[in-house]
Nucleic acid binder design. Structure first.
Length: 696
DNA sequence: TTTTGAAGTCTCTCC
DNA sequence: GACTTCAAAA
């Protein structure tokens, strides 16, 4: 591992090396950071703006605790993503040496999972439960809906499984009564409240009898364990210090868990920035961070405002954008990084030109010596990078995409995993449903009927082959039955999961080839899945890891290789980019309806969240920021039309005044389609703008 | 009654 | 471009 900070390792082992002086961590931080890092005991709230050294402060606090003699395994560090946890723990390790390795760190969900595996059996939760991801949970909700909706589901205006799951999850995470939630967010469905609650009851019941656990349950059971008469004290007694990153993205359920975990000592340090709260769809509320001092008596508040990341012009624009927020609590950021380039506001004609501008500017910066890994292209939603990805591939520019549609969400990958999951948990109804409907001649109704019979017989895998399937499905049923029985008997061990997948594919690949015209990319996905599986000792370990730590990007699938070695451009949704920084950032599709997304327009709260999201996007940049907006876009709804697009409403007159307007010319590149005659001369819109400046 | 094919309807963010 | 809904076919 590269020791970038070339810091001496003070703690080679668990014992402090008394021959070396204790490192003065204060000297490496500013006054506020140092106060936070070396703060003693009791609740601590650190309000930290973008780029103010939030991670650094938290990392140093962990190091300071270790230096003060707190055993590493008595420290719990909760982060929002697994990426953040890994990064912080490796920084701690660089700072204090290998003792940092024993700090417990991870996401709330991963930590809840670990505790549930360990303590669940004592609280009546079977230890071999299967974790459902969101898609699985929605599928189970679909089954519950089919059973419990009654006549209501036949109506047009009845919530879909995704909506039901969303309502359920919000209810669980925020404590808001279902009636209030539905009334507030889905007034259309208030007539169906009784049916909705009945479905939720059925969903919960199904989870229990099928030994399934959804993401929310990982938190719910954690809280339940804390409230448990026998276990509570044991679980709460695991840690002496709890630290939480991105506190503005926690919800009330998580706050209650923290309250329970720290009830004996109140040694809870949280870091957050209300201006970067962008996960309200998950039940998070930036009010949570405001309520912190009220929830935890005697809270000390420390505010970090000096930004070490961005040059002043980038900070100016970001500050102006966020200053329009109707409610905010942190102050403006400032920096000593004076000078620097003003952010570019780039008007392009259409998507192909936007793509071309981004690619050429990236190549230009790259030729000037900036590594690709120091640049990122950000966008509001995963699908918005499609055109760019094609072009990057054509030009052989390596990139790594974060966020957006994930590998594991692809139907064919889920299909193969369903085989493994049924083997691991024969009661896993969601996976049975997938497998059964895969067979010819078996649809939803027959699948439900067969599952009913399977349940009646006690979910024995070997019974599957004897079930009365329709004649068309007989042959496929027999081969599936044989396969499952055979795999069930196979032993775990080195490479066993990859071997299982190979056997599954012997059956499944043919189905795949029949189903799709071009099965090759999907077959390649399965190839990769098989390769990843090679690194796990058992099906259970593999499945749990996939649910909680999904490969974050297409590159991550390349297995354990350190990404630092390869120079790769990052494409990312703004959400996935949070907490990261790059030398040059391109924000594409800064168009009203795209950013902010049109569905948020008209809803004040959602619009505010979009604004914060824009702020997050801009503050990722250190030296260069370019915001691009196509003047017109191909509108798929009315495919013959181009629409004239508006620049994002967040880039108002004052913001634009702080930016450098740029219109790329693309001389000698005639492939670009001419502007369509939409009744308006688009070039007229561009008139009065500056030429492409600053470029070299 | 159940499955399948075709037209129609949206399209997000993450553990 | 993926998924739901509707209508016809088995």
């Amino acid at each position: 591992m590269p020791d970038q900070n070339d810091l001496p390792r003070i703690y080679p082992g668990r014992e402090r090396d008394v021959t070396r002086p204790v490192r003065d961590l204060r000297s490496e931080l500013n006054a506020e950071q140092a106060a936070a890092a070396t703060f003693g005991t009791g609740p601590l709230l650190i309000i930290a703006g973008a780029g103010t050294g939030k991670t650094r402060t938290l990392t140093y606090r962990v190091a300071d605790l270790l230096q003060r003699g707190v055993p590493a395994e008595r420290i719990l560090l909760l982060t929002f993503t697994r990426r953040a946890a890994q990064e912080m723990l490796s920084r701690v390790e660089r700072l204090v040496g290998s003792s940092g390795r024993h700090v417990h760190g991870g996401t709330f969900h991963a930590t809840g999972h670990r505790l549930l595996r360990r303590f669940g059996p004592a609280a009546g939760v079977a230890g071999d439960f299967t974790i459902m991801d969101q898609g699985d949970a929605e599928d189970l909700m679909h089954l519950a809906r089919a059973e419990h909706a009654g006549g209501a589901a036949r109506l047009k205006r009845f919530p879909k499984k995704e909506t039901l799951h969303h309502i359920y999850s919000r209810h669980v995470n925020t404590d808001m009564p279902i009636a209030e939630l539905v009334g507030r967010e889905y007034p259309l469905f208030t007539d169906h409240l009784v049916a909705i609650e009945r479905i939720f009851g059925g969903y919960t019941e199904r989870k229990a009898t099928r030994n399934l656990v959804d993401y929310d349950d990982l938190l719910l059971f954690w809280l339940a364990m804390l409230d448990h008469a026998g276990l509570g004290a044991q679980v709460a007694g695991l840690y002496d210090h709890v630290l939480v990153d991105e506190y503005q993205d926690t919800n009330t359920l998580q706050a209650r868990i923290l309250h329970g975990m720290c009830r004996a000592h109140a040694n809870l340090a949280v870091v957050g920035d209300d201006a970067q709260s962008v996960y309200s769809f998950r039940g998070a509320s930036f009010r949570n961070i405001l309520d912190f001092p009220r929830t935890f008596d005697g809270t000390t508040i420390i505010t970090l405002e000096e930004n070490y990341r961005s040059v002043q012009p980038i900070l100016d624009v970001s500050n102006t954008v966020i200053s329009r927020a109707t409610e905010r609590f942190t102050k403006n950021l400032w920096t000593k990084r004076m000078g620097g380039e003003r952010p570019w506001l780039v008007a392009v004609q259409d998507e192909p030109q936007q793509t071309r501008f981004v690619v050429e500017r990236i190549l230009e910066l790259h030729e000037q010596g900036m590594p690709l890994r120091e640049m990122a292209v950000l966008f509001r939603a995963g699908y918005m990078s499609a055109d760019l990805e094609v072009e990057l591939t054509n030009r052989n520019i390596p990139y790594d995409k974060w966020g957006g549609l994930k590998f594991l969400e692809a139907a064919h990958v889920k299909d193969v995993l369903a085989f493994l999951r049924v083997l691991e948990n024969p009661r896993d109804e969601v996976s049975w449903y997938r497998l059964l409907t895969l067979l010819p001649g078996i649809g939803e109704a027959t699948a439900r009927d067969l599952m009913g019979q399977l349940a009646a017989r006690g979910w024995l895998l070997d019974d599957f082959g004897t079930l009365p399937a329709p004649p068309r499905a007989r042959e496929a049923q027999r081969s599936l039955g044989t396969l499952l029985s055979r795999l069930q008997g196979a032993a775990d061990g080195e490479g066993s999961v990859a071997r299982d997948i190979a056997r599954i594919r012997a059956l499944y690949d043919d189905l795949l080839r029949e189903k799709y015209d071009t099965p090759e990319p999907r077959l390649a996905d399965l190839e990769q899945l098989q390769a990843i599986a090679g690194g796990y000792p058992s099906r259970g370990a593999f499945l749990a890891a996939l649910a909680l730590e999904p490969p974050q990007s297409t590159q991550d699938l390349g297995m354990g290789t350190e990404d630092d070695e390869t120079d790769t451009l990052v494409l990312s949704t703004v959400h996935s980019a949070k907490g990261k920084e790059w030398n040059a950032v391109f924000l594409i599709w800064a168009v009203d309806g795209w950013f902010p997304l049109s569905r948020s327009i008209g809803n004040e709260e959602e619009l505010e969240e979009e604004r914060r999201l824009m702020y997050v996007a801009m503050t990722r940049a250190r030296d260069h920021l370019a915001v691009t907006y196509p003047l017109n876009s191909y509108n798929s709804r009315r495919s013959a039309d181009y629409s004239i697009d508006q620049l994002s409403r967040f880039l108002d007159r004052e913001v634009r005044g702080q930016m450098e307007r740029v219109v790329p010319t693309f001389e000698g590149l005639p492939e670009s389609p001419p502007a369509p005659s939409a009744g308006m001369d688009l070039r007229a819109l561009m008139r009065g703008r500056f030429g492409m400046g600053g470029g070299g």
